Simulated scan of single mutants.
Amino acid sequence: MFNQRQQRYLSYFIKLSVCITGLVSSLAMASNTFSEQQVQQMLSTADSFRLQDDAAKVVSLVTLYQHNEVDKTRQYNVYTRANRQSLVIFKSAVEAGQKMLMLGDNYWLQMPKTRRPIRITPMQKLLGEASVGDISTLAWRYDYKASWYANENISDVSGKSVAAYQLKLIAVTAGVSYQKIDLWIDKLTYFPLRADLYLASGKLAKQAVFSQGIRDDKPAVVAMTLLDSIQPSKKTVIEYQQVVSWKLDDKYYTPSFLSRSNTTEL
Rank of each mutant, 00 (worst) to 15 (best):
A220C: 06
T225I: 07
I118A: 04
S44E: 12
Y9V: 08
R141S: 12
K91Y: 02
A174P: 07
T137E: 07
I185S: 00
Q231N: 14
A96Y: 01
T263A: 15
L51E: 04
N3H: 05
M29H: 14
T263C: 15
V221D: 04
Q231K: 15
L199N: 03
W108S: 07
Q40L: 10
D216C: 02
K203F: 00
A139I: 11
N77T: 07
Q179A: 14
L87M: 06
D249P: 09
R84V: 07
D186Q: 14
A208T: 06
T225L: 00
D143W: 10
M29V: 15
S60G: 02
T263Y: 10
K91T: 08
R141H: 12
L204R: 03
S17Q: 00
Y240R: 03
R8T: 04
G128K: 12
S158E: 10
T121C: 13
Q6T: 04
R260W: 03
Q124T: 14
A146S: 11
M123D: 14
D134H: 09
L87N: 05
D47V: 08
Y9K: 11
G128C: 14
D250N: 15
K203I: 02
L27N: 10
Q38R: 10
I20K: 00
F257L: 06
Q4H: 10
T63L: 00
A164P: 13
L183T: 06
R5F: 13
A130Y: 12
A55N: 08
A163C: 04
E36Y: 08
S25L: 14
L226T: 07
S48T: 13
V209R: 07
M42N: 01
P192C: 09
A174R: 15
S155C: 02
T264C: 01
I214L: 01
N83C: 00
V172C: 09
L167H: 08
L226H: 04
S25F: 07
Q7T: 00
P255T: 09
P219M: 01
A195R: 01
R116L: 13
A195L: 08
L51D: 09
P219E: 01
K234M: 06
